[in-house]
Amino acid sequence: MEKNSTKAMIITLATIGIISAILLTFVYQWTIPYIEANQEETRRIAINEVLPTAEEINQVERESQIFYEGYDSSGNRVGMAYQHSGGGYNGPIELMIGVDLEAEEIIRISILNHQETPGLGARITEEEYKSNFAGKPFGDYEVVKTPPSKTMEVQAVAGATISSANTTRIVEEAVSMINNAYGGGS
């Protein structure tokens, strides 16, 4: 068979493709349990962070969204956690938000995944920024560059206004998703 014939080319590429696919199937099957366990673990830590008083977490599905209801040891619902994502400065930001439905307040937020600039936007994962949302009532927030003077103000991370504003918007969206699913909270 001539080396550069069309047949030879097709056979070569098909063979490499098939061998590659077989090898990657094994790699996939080997790694996927670890990958899923990692994601599960990240989610569990995040839920614990945003619902610190919850002893037991129940996963519920409402309006085709997954919510995590947190209960304390005596069976009272202490809060709800919800995972939401949106665009950041460099890529998607994925966060977990914990809310108190009765008080209509955010308890805490936790950043699961992000690709923001290290040293700048990446500081949305630090307590200084996240604490902005602790105890905030539901509603629309305003991102400001100075220490907040009103309840609905959120202080941006210095030098990372876009990351801060986008995270704030994701939080607002998450709150309205929860509100929709749980009938406006009232």
Binding site: L23, L24, Y34, I35, N38
Partner: peptide, 19 residues
């Protein structure tokens, strides 16, 4: 194709063991 195979391997490996 050969390079992509190894890169995919690295991608899964990092996600599994160095998340």
């Amino acid at each position: 194709l050969i390079i992509a195979t190894f890169v995919t391997f690295v991608d899964y490996f990092l996600k599994a063991f160095y998340p």
